[in-house]
Design a binder for these strands. Structure first.
Lengths: 336, 336
DNA sequence: TTGAAAGCGCTAACAA
DNA sequence: TTGTTAGCGCTTTCAA
């Protein structure tokens, strides 16, 4: 292994000066820098991050903690999006990202906090976390700066990146109404989930604004499950809805299956609108109208928020990530 | 930050002895261990990995290098599978995994080798790599032990994890023949791709074994693209095939779309068989018959191979990961 | 079974 | 602009 000492010997300069040259400090003569760089090339020097980290207080790194992924799951594409957003932003900022894939199925998993401490990260990004995660509480108490994705949270040193669920549910519902749908069902997630509450609110708001009567019996709880959504859709069909807004694409897929099984046509008889924008929506027939989240953007913004906070003491915020209203075949307008 | 020194002061023992106790060396009295552990708890000591790494030659870590992921892509579920396999195996073996998401779109990306050196990893797992990747050549020359996923490779210190493409293509084709299909087209990947060559071989082998005439005009190059596969499928339909084996699920989806557009029924008129087993296959109507790869297993085995080699000098191998022949609606047997 | 001392590769005062 | 010195938190000889 080539070390600074080797460069030092090779150039006749002190180790300190070599270190300064390599890190491009401005109190080093151009001549020295050149000489050092030449030696670096010749000897193939590569810095030792562990040593840097140990010696310097400001070797920057953050943890990306990912929970609730599955081996083979249709929503994993969003995860990769978030990850690449985070990694790209950190690499632009010369910050190291350490990934913690947390699964209780894995042996020897440690708490989020311990993971962060061991690695001496200066902040963390949390993704896929549930509000009541006990590990989360511990992290929060530790006052390590962190950014939570998808749960609005805001304190001195905790920020978040979220989407405006209410707004986009409103827009989805509005689009259905404008497509001449009169009886619009909702297959929501689980009642306790934060996003479900918001998405339901947007749906109700739109109905109200456009003078569509609200009928509680058209609101079902699909528990974010494809199978549960199939059931809900069956019930809604028997209620003669002509549109269903689903609080997730996965549930929209279930609904579509049900409706097809019942011999109804989409979108002629019933329009479907999903939420999330997973890759699947473009592979299903009919293509599913959806609210397309920008996972990459969420990851990037989370990382940016954290890094700005770390670097410049920028106050934490609740940052919004925009979505795209993506109207496809499944919700084409009905002829009057 | 609580350090060994703090524990040392708190217990009256030397730093050395505290270190030994914490690492559970056997030349430490039970009494001391107890005393130290108590202090660890009380003070909330967490080891500093950077320091460990620097001080000890055998602090184990490996790099997982992932190339060619995309922000939002339907095959990302396989990636997550591999990642969780790797992380799980390494965590069982007290080995640190450092992830390198490599994308040329990111700024400031460094070579795989430099990444590995900076972190002082003792081995690497490569995933999504192309044979002609220039960064790969450099890594290979460095003789860092590594395991390549999906490309058969074998040297003193390079192993690989692959699936038996030929065997499973054979089985897929056989299954189509046994379903009374007489004229079976192939939509292959790209001619130069290693997996395509193998998959084609398996297809041909099966035809030969079962006495089905080989017709080169039924073999198309779909370039692993959904759109290209749509074209190929159109051509094959005009050739009156009654089955198409697609070298990837993504292409199978394209083929299905084409066939539906042409007013043909699946599987009545034409059976479809895919390859890969991405999450999508269970969401398409009809569900696609496929060769389901076990991504988790691939990741786990890659990691295991590398770790065994590192620990016990186990020779490198070309390890096979099994697939599951998964027969669904799209290839149900035709009535004679 | 224990402790003193050296050193892993690097950065950062402080002096010169 | 440069070099000397100390030290980050840990492991590991070596000697007791």
């Amino acid at each position: 292994m080539v070390t600074l000492k080797d460069i030092s010997k090779h150039t006749g300069l002190s180790v300190t000066q070599v270190s300064r040259a390599i890190n491009n400090h401005n109190d080093v003569s151009e001549a020295t820098k050149k000489k050092v760089m030449k030696a670096v090339d010749e000897l193939g020097y590569v810095p030792n991050l562990a040593a840097k980290k140990l010696a310097s207080k400001n070797e920057k790194s953050i943890a990306l903690i990912v929970v609730g992924f599955e081996k083979q799951h249709s929503t994993n594409d969003m995860l990769i999006g978030i990850m690449s957003g985070v990694f790209n932003c950190t690499s632009e900022n010369d910050t190291e990202t350490v990934l913690y894939l947390y699964s209780e199925k894995f042996l020897k998993q440690k708490s989020y906090l311990q993971f962060c401490r061991e690695r001496g990260v200066s902040g963390a990004i949390l993704c896929g976390i549930k509000r009541d995660d006990p590990n989360l509480k511990e992290l929060i108490k530790s006052d390590l700066p962190m950014v939570v994705i998808d749960i609005p949270y805001l304190t001195e040193n905790i920020g978040s990146v979220v989407i405006d669920n209410e707004k986009y549910s409103y827009l989805a519902t509005k689009s259905l109404i404008e497509g001449n749908r009169k009886k619009i069902g909702l297959i929501n997630g689980s009642e306790s989930a934060y996003v479900s509450i918001e998405r339901k609110a947007g749906y109700l708001e739109a109905l109200k604004d456009f003078g569509v009567e609200i009928d509680e019996s058209l609101i079902k709880d699909g528990e974010f499950s494809r199978d549960k959504a199939k059931e809900c859709a069956r019930e809604l069909v028997s209620e003669n809805v002509d549109a269903i807004f689903c609080s997730s694409d996965l549930m929209a897929i279930g609904a579509i299956e049900s409706i097809k099984e019942l011999g109804k046509n989409i979108p002629e008889d019933i329009a479907i609108f999903g939420f999330d924008g997973i890759a699947l929506v473009d592979y299903i027939t009919p293509n599913i109208s959806t609210i397309r989240q920008n996972s990459y953007d969420k990851g990037y913004k989370a990382s940016d928020l954290l890094i700005q906070h770390l670097k410049n003491k920028t106050p934490m915020r609740v940052v919004k990530s925009d979505c795209e209203v993506c109207i496809q075949q499944s919700s084409e307008a009905k002829k009057k």
